[in-house]
Design a protein around this nucleic acid. Sequence first.
DNA 1: CGTGCAGTTGAACGGGGTCAAGTGGCGTGG
DNA 2: CCACGCCACTTGACCCCGTTCAACTGCACG
Lengths: 237, 237
Amino acid sequence: MANLAEGGNQVACATCVMSPLCNSRAAANGGPAPVECRRRFATGERIYAAGAPRDTVYAIRAGTAQVSLNDGHGSHVVRFLLPGDAAGLDAFAGGNHANEAVALEDCEVCVIPAYRAEILGKHSEATCAQLRAIMARSLADTEMHAAMLARLAAPQRVARFLLDLSQRWQERGFSAMSFRLPMGRRAIGQHLGLTTETVSRVLSDFQAHGWIELPWREVRLVQPDKLREVLASPPHR
Amino acid sequence: MANLAEGGNQVACATCVMSPLCNSRAAANGGPAPVECRRRFATGERIYAAGAPRDTVYAIRAGTAQVSLNDGHGSHVVRFLLPGDAAGLDAFAGGNHANEAVALEDCEVCVIPAYRAEILGKHSEATCAQLRAIMARSLADTEMHAAMLARLAAPQRVARFLLDLSQRWQERGFSAMSFRLPMGRRAIGQHLGLTTETVSRVLSDFQAHGWIELPWREVRLVQPDKLREVLASPPHR
DNA sequence: CGTGCAGTTGAACGGGGTCAAGTGGCGTGG
DNA sequence: CCACGCCACTTGACCCCGTTCAACTGCACG
């Protein structure tokens, strides 16, 4: 339960998606401890690299990170990871990691070798099902993300992004109205399929309307309902 | 091994992603048969609906289908299903289906109650791992799709779509150069984040260049390398 | 034969990308 | 301490690609 020096983004294991794994009866009944070790990553450090052998999954214990996909010409940010999120789930397809994860802030990460998760799953059907559920949720989220990229206009994408982060912080017991934006405008753009300029413009717009405030690398949602309104309005297509 | 009346899209179970499940030793050793029944769906019929209880996964045995996500304002086609593909994998997250699957042609579908898959997984770690691998691959594919939507221009999207279908048909033992396009232009557009008009224009363009031919609801790739060239060229962003 | 829908094609518009300049915070080195 | 350069971000002006709107074709229904 050690706190990171920088503090603030720590979450109890209770809210971690991997906790069913860590606390499974299987682990108590002679299975190995799922977590091999906890590692720290400094801002900008790579948690795992694309092309690395896919034999490990990770749980973000503190700090934030981004998962991105690189095709040689540029990169797309698949998702942002908050404390309690899992990464590297494609480990279970064997082969190599297709994407990479990079720490956006100093992070503490639980390292879980895939084979240990699999051993745990062998001992407990409940654990195995939990693993499937985590993957299924991740799949559903990614499908939603793709749908957003295909259908929404720029302001709607940004509104959705802010509301999504808001909800995820709230689920973790933090404020839904005010939170850090550890990623830069460029990363937001790479996540939403927009340029930095457009992200900047839309955020400025929202601020000019008085719907949000933008202190340095933070957001305060002043009128989240207005954002929901933007999102609900007839989409781009 | 019955063939459908319309024939042509039948695949041997050997190429089905679910075959490891069906043929697992667990099934032989007293586990239940994974497949509850085989159902047929006519063109346009819904295989499962959004909001339906998520308790079943499906394997397309013959025919093609589309999985789409609906948000009230319109819909996004998440992926197209070819014979041997699995659908409804989000079943394992519990709750309800977020997306729906619709037959594009007359289909024969293996219906696999989720609990049976789970029972099989309990008997065999290999089966359980296979299930995870299928989900992980689906996740990786969806991430690639999102990256494409975020970064590629219209002609590159269409080229990628054609090459992707080509490869998937080839993996199933059919021609990589010539195959049916069971989905309409609108569905292609909903998959690629483009309008029907743009899809039509780009396809006409490719045809005018002599790279492809477009008989009624079919494609023949005359110069697939040209398509690969389009795809490799510096992306939209 | 008429109606309807899928597809194609043309013309014009506009959202967002591109290019460019300007601002401000921060670290580094004098 | 300040000077400097760097980088993230912002803002403006312009332009292009894909959307929108519309007309037309052709095959498939009743």
